[in-house]
């Protein structure tokens, strides 16, 4: 089925579900309980108001455990001013999508805030709750989209890059034949030789790899910040370009062609269910055909919920400086340093 259609239908169903629940409670509109992972913004931290009201109202009649009353009985949910005032304190936990009647909601929230993993989500019988399950499906769909999507040409142009191909012509081949993703097409080699400065200190390459969303969302900030960092350090950065459907070791071919000191490859990581847009920066000192993996190094987990892209770019500059100073990367660098 068409992925866009699936997304649309999922949204419709979830919104409908939520609209119902909201009107059951007190007829007020409230923010959606399921948070869609928005690819364009950081995940919201606002909890659902509706859920709090349910919990607060329940609190009135018991000191110990919180009772959640039937959703049909809307009279039970009149909010008194004192309840309103106490909202601030329990603001950060949303009972409905999580565990029912947690013994220690504050502690639970503290634990949940420490990880993006799906903990404390509660259950309905032996299964996850509907919201949790839909969120899971949605994240899975986003991961699939990230693998099969393409990077927008507009971004590549905005960064002033040109685009070349590997020996892969379609995504199915890319997945089945990793070796093709490590080799540049003949045409690509010609273009690179024609357009790029030879023997720069640093050669930056971008590639979608397994996540086009990683490049679309995060590459620009890493790239611009890295550019500034290299400039401040006085390192010459050659002519950066974009390789479509590349694998990490494609940097070896680029190394052969252009003979830079260091290659930095910003490439989309295999998407997971927490983030489908995580970016890695692979570095290698003088990569050539036959370079062993131990000589590569990587800064991974660059995305809005991980290492902030702009900070990663600034940090990469200092790593590159070290690689150039010791004329080594990866395990060799550790040996030389220590």
């Amino acid at each position: 089925m068409n992925p866009e259609l699936i997304e649309k239908v999922t949204r419709l169903v979830v919104e409908k579900l939520q609209a119902q629940e909201t009107s059951d409670v007190n007829g007020q509109k409230s923010s959606a309980a399921v948070k869609f992972w928005r690819h364009t913004s950081s995940p919201g931290t606002q909890p659902s108001r509706m859920s709090e009201e349910v919990i607060e109202a329940g609190k009135q009649d018991t000191d110990g455990l919180i009772k959640i009353k039937s959703y049909q009985n809307s009279n039970a949910f009149k909010i008194t001013p004192t309840d309103k005032a106490s909202h601030d304190k329990t603001e950060s936990y949303s009972g409905k999508t999580g565990i029912d009647n947690p013994a220690d909601p504050v502690e639970l929230e503290a634990l949940k805030s420490k990880t993006p993993a799906r903990i404390g989500v509660g259950r309905a019988g032996s299964r996850p709750k509907t919201d949790t399950w839909l969120k899971f499906r949605f994240d899975h769909a986003a991961a699939v989209d990230a693998v099969y999507g393409d990077v927008n040409d507009e971004l590549i142009n905005r960064l002033g890059l040109f685009k070349v191909n590997t020996m892969v012509n379609e995504k199915e081949v890319y997945i089945r034949r990793p070796d093709y993703g490590r080799k540049l097409s003949e045409e690509a080699k010609k273009i690179i030789l024609a357009k790029c400065q030879k023997g720069p200190a640093v050669q930056i390459i971008l590639s979608d790899g397994l996540s086009s969303s990683a490049i679309e969302e995060n590459a620009e900030d890493v790239y611009l910040s890295l550019q500034q960092s290299l400039k401040s350090l006085g390192l010459d950065m050659g002519t950066p370009f974009y390789i479509e459907k590349g694998r990490v070791a494609v940097m070896d071919e680029v190394g052969e062609l252009l003979k830079p000191k260091v290659v930095v490859l910003l490439i989309g990581e295999r998407p997971g269910l927490v983030s489908a847009e995580s970016l890695s920066a692979y570095l290698c000192y003088e990569p050539r055909k036959g370079t062993i993996e131990a000589d590569r190094m990587v800064i991974s987990n660059i995305h809005k919920g991980g290492i902030p892209p702009a900070e990663a770019g600034a940090y990469l500059g200092t790593v590159i400086q070290k690689v150039i100073k010791y004329e080594a990367s990866g395990v060799s660098l550790v040996k030389k340093e220590g």
Binding site: S225, Q228, S229, K231, S232, I307, P308, A310, E311, G313, A314, Y315, G317
Partner: peptide, 14 residues
């Protein structure tokens, strides 16, 4: 509070 000190410092310096 958040992890942005290096890039901000570097940018101010530039």
């Amino acid at each position: 509070e958040s992890d942005h000190a290096k890039v901000l410092g570097q940018t101010i310096k530039v």
